[in-house]
Nucleic acid binder design. Structure first.
Length: 571
RNA sequence: CGGGGCGUAGCGCAGUCUGGUAGCGCACCACACUGGGGGUGUGGUGGUCGCAGGUUCAAAUCCUGCCGUCCCGACCA
């Protein structure tokens, strides 16, 4: 590709409405342009990247035995009513009517359509298992689209759905997809982790999210320093440290005045009580609307996902209102404690291992010290309800947990028979009995991958593409091409040689100054740059510069393609 | 959905408080110089000042309504 024939729409300045680095760089490099909130054009340069990602995803899905198909973006409301999601999905589902006032929606996902396909095409267990995928535009009317294509309303997703006669077969495909995803992200050249995730409302034995690690990620994930264990922090079990020795003699329970102190920080700052020596008591509602006390150590946070899974609790977790607490218990939020509390009390395992503790006295302006679980709160339940923190022992038994941030780019889970039952997608088994098909579902955020890759791979000059995703493999930057026949000849012959070698090449044949060309190639993040100028040509070589390291090699023109091949293979 | 910010040329912004009929930098076009890191000069193109209504002799500026867009928040006691 000659730059003079391409649409390079780079910006020197950062658009003011872009906050995160990937969004800024995607706009500056001219990969995308905004059309409306959360809706973007993919410009020629950006589309090249997108297509590369899609192609790798497609190849690995096919290698793993999945078949590509294409389902519509516009879907009949009827199908969604059948699955029950027409009423459940909420305003994220963009609904519309056709000219006959029939309900339709823009597909935020395709379970309904795929299930309809399966029930009409698959009649026998002999046709199973079946794994179908598409790379398709989705629309989710997000409350708050943000971060460019990272959380946009219209986006491209690879979604695959598998159908099975039983759970065991589904598990096999599940792990095959796990492997395929691992290969995909490795081929893309991304630093990623597969992490155990919440199986959510649908259930199933497993669910894994694939995260690209980046400090700007929206999700927190925990992983072991010494093993492959990794989990979403929502899910990772919090293991108490070694049990502390009880004081001897046992401390006495003692009430003391704490005027205007209603937070753990107040106690720490004003009375010097370390947060690790106090506990905090939160109140949530159970399914009957009764209050339940949830207790964690002062320096820990409640994990709402874990707490919601306690027997009898509302899910998602609902915390109590201040007014109700005041009325029921006669004390404000900041003065609560488990001692003598006439409620069900659930204590986090780590808090329960404290030999004694400081807590609210259930009376405004007072706290208790010297409280001991066994003696003062004999009827409490103990459970894992806190958020893990850096340095917690790993649940796998090896090493400690480290928390890092990630961008979710893939998610695989087990659907069971939720949709096949709702939509009567059944097959006959070996005994001739009708069975709902067991389903799995596997998604990859294709457009999000592009942004995530930039979050992870950039510097002050711009994007640094992993080679597999780069819009061009090689940039040829001739200097003074219009003035020098030597430069022109060397450039044209290298261009032809690179094309012949099968690389995609951007040849900057524009009459721009060198600084402009260099800055642009660096902003675009093309992995290898070949600079051709009279100066170095006179000394018998071309300059080959790597985007990532900035290193430059001097190479004889006839050895150039060989050198480029080696560099591309190494990137 | 709640709170806040912003809307003036393709991009970044000033001008708004204190009303007088629109400006700067970048980009773009032409020419000249320059020619290995976003160069210099001269001359240009481009704007219903988000939209609608109101106040006024006069509105980018004041008032009202609407729209768009971005950010923050939506469990921590």
């Amino acid at each position: 590709m000659r730059a003079s024939e391409f649409l390079l729409s780079t910006l020197k300045e950062t658009p003011s409405d872009a906050e995160v680095i990937s969004h800024q760089l995607m706009l500056r490099a001219g990969l995308i342009r905004r059309v409306a909130a959360g809706i973007y054009n993919w410009m020629p340069l950006g589309l090249r990247v997108l297509r590369k990602v899609e192609q790798i995803v497609r190849e690995e899905m096919e290698r793993a035995g999945a078949l590509e198909l294409s389902m519509p973006v516009v879907q009949p409301g009827e199908l969604w009513q059948e699955s029950g999601r027409w009423d459940l999905y909420g305003p994220e589902l963009c609904r519309l009517e056709d000219r006959h006032q029939r309900p339709f929606c823009l597909g935020p996902t395709h379970e309904e359509v795929i299930t309809q396909i399966a029930r009409s095409e698959v009649k026998s267990y002999k046709q199973l298992p079946l794994n179908l995928f598409q790379i398709q535009t989705k629309f989710r009317d997000e409350i708050r689209p943000r971060f460019g294509v990272m959380r946009s309303r219209e986006f491209i997703m690879k979604d695959a759905y598998s159908f099975h006669i039983d759970q065991a077969c589904q598990e096999q495909t599940y792990w095959r997809m796990h492997e395929a995803y691992t290969t995909i992200f490795r081929r893309l050249g991304l630093d990623f982790r597969a992490v155990e995730a919440d199986t959510g409302a649908i259930g199933g034995n497993h669910s894994h999210e694939f995260h690209v690690l980046a400090t700007s990620g929206e999700d927190a994930i925990a992983f072991s320093t010494d093993s492959d264990y990794a989990a979403n922090v929502e899910l990772a079990p919090a293991i108490p440290g070694p049990q502390e020795e009880a004081g001897d003699p046992e401390p006495l329970l003692e009430k003391f005045a704490t005027p205007d102190m209603t937070t753990i920080e107040d106690l720490a700052e004003q009375l010097g009580i370390p947060a690790q020596r106090s506990i905090k008591t939160l109140l949530a509602k159970d399914a009957q609307g009764d209050l339940v006390a949830l207790v964690v150590r002062g320096d820990h946070r409640l994990n709402a996902v874990k707490a919601a899974k306690l027997p009898g609790m509302l899910s998602p977790l609902v915390l109590a209102e201040a007014a109700e607490v005041k009325q029921r218990l006669g004390a404000g939020f900041g003065s609560l404690g488990p001692v003598g509390l006439p409620l069900r009390v659930v204590v986090d395992r780590t808090a329960a291992s404290m030999p004694d503790f400081v807590c609210g006295a259930n009376e405004d302006g007072y706290h208790l010290r010297g409280a001991i679980w066994r003696r003062d709160v004999p009827d409490c339940e103990v459970a894992d309800i806190r958020e893990i923190v850096n340095g917690d022992p790993s649940p796998c038994g090896h090493g400690t947990l480290e928390i890092r941030r990630g961008i979710e780019v893939g998610h695989i889970f087990q659907l069971g028979t939720k949709y096949s039952e709702a939509m009567a997608a059944t097959v006959l088994d070996e005994q001739g009995r009708s069975q709902p098909m067991v389903m799995g579902c596997y998604g990859i955020g294709v457009t999000r991958i592009v942004a995530a890759a930039i979050e992870q791979n950039h510097d002050s000059k711009g994007i640094i593409w992993p080679t597999a995703m780069a819009p061009f493999d090689v940039a040829i930057v001739p200097l003074g091409m219009d003035k020098s026949d030597a430069v022109r000849d060397a450039t044209e012959s290298l261009y032809a040689a690179c094309e012949a070698a099968g690389w995609s090449v951007l040849m900057d044949d524009r009459p721009e100054r060198p600084g402009v060309k260099f800055a642009e190639v660096e902003l675009l993040g093309i992995p290898v740059r070949v600079t051709i100028g009279d100066r170095s040509l006179a000394e018998g070589h071309l300059e080959i510069t790597l985007r990532r390291s900035g290193e430059t090699d001097m190479v004889a023109p006839e050895k150039a393609t060989e050198a480029i091949r080696a560099l591309l293979a190494n990137q």
